[in-house]
Computed example of a mutant assay.
Amino acid sequence: MDVLDHLTAARLVPVVVLDDAARASALADALVAGGLPVAEVTFRTPAAADAVRAVADHGGVLVGAGTVLTPDQVDQAVAAGAAFVVSPGLSRAVVERCREHGVAFLPGAVTATEVQAALELGLSTVKFFPAATSGGTAAVRALSAPFAGVRFVPTGGIGPDDLAQWLAVPSVAAVGGSWMVPRDRIAAGDFETVRELTARAVALAAR
């Protein structure tokens, strides 16, 4: 099973912001205990690369790097052990660097032009971002008609109340979200709450 198949099987991708890499191992424990051994650690803080490394070293979680904007960040992410890379938009330079490293890549795409550009670069799974403000499920369903082979991972503004409607779209491979990994709870070391929220999210996705 390749990385994208793992994400599809998980149905959920926790989007994590870690301000302190020392919290990463405990976060990984909480995700595993909650039944969701997947994490997208965003490159939004100085601790990102070290956090990816700590989660990768944990061994029980499929870890990727998110908010990757440049080839240099791809290099950092892969060196830290990221199994996949996620961007908010589509960059040919980032695609090519991911291909050089042999790492799976999810570019952001919300328009027909962007989806077609991703296809031309050899990609068939894209991050639909920002999902809630870019037409929602209706937009993904509309895009799925001309792009029948494309899988979408909607992220941005999705929560437990609308998770089911996103997962009901046939072309949605998985849903990204941060509600089960609140930044403030991680910073506070409250990993029991993270575990509980993760377990609830997994249960919702299984319905």
Score class of each variant (00 low, 15 high):
P71M: 07
L106M: 03
L12C: 05
A201M: 00
S178V: 11
W179S: 00
G159V: 04
V52C: 00
I158W: 04
H58F: 03
I186P: 06
T198Y: 01
K127T: 09
I186N: 09
S124Q: 13
P37C: 05
L121K: 02
I158D: 03
E96N: 02
A174N: 09
A164K: 08
R23I: 03
S91K: 13
P146F: 10
L167V: 06
L121V: 06
R97K: 07
P107R: 12
T113V: 03
A145W: 12
V175K: 02
A112I: 03
F191P: 01
V150I: 08
F152R: 09
G64V: 05
A26K: 14
G135M: 05
F105K: 12
G35C: 11
R183V: 15
V172P: 06
A138P: 02
E192C: 05
V126S: 07
D162Y: 02
D50I: 02
G136R: 10
L163G: 06
A187V: 13
A168S: 15
P170H: 10
D20A: 04
V63Y: 00
G34N: 12
F43D: 01
R200D: 12
G89H: 09
A109M: 09
Q165T: 15
G89R: 05
V41R: 10
Q73W: 11
A139I: 05
A65E: 01
L36E: 06
L7K: 01
A82G: 02
P107H: 12
Q76F: 00
A201P: 13
A109D: 06
A21Q: 01
A109H: 06
G159F: 00
A93N: 11
V86F: 01
V95T: 14
V150A: 12
V110C: 03
V175F: 01
V61G: 04
A145S: 12
M1L: 14
E40T: 11
A203T: 14
V94N: 02
R23M: 11
G59T: 09
T8K: 14
A173G: 06
L18E: 06
Q116G: 08
A205G: 14
A77N: 05
F129C: 13
P146I: 13
A93P: 08
G159W: 08
D184Q: 15
E100N: 00
D20S: 13
A203W: 08
A56H: 02
V38H: 05
G176A: 02
A199S: 05
T125N: 07
I186A: 00
A173E: 10
A65M: 06
W179N: 03
G102R: 10
L69G: 08
L18M: 03
A168M: 04
G157P: 07
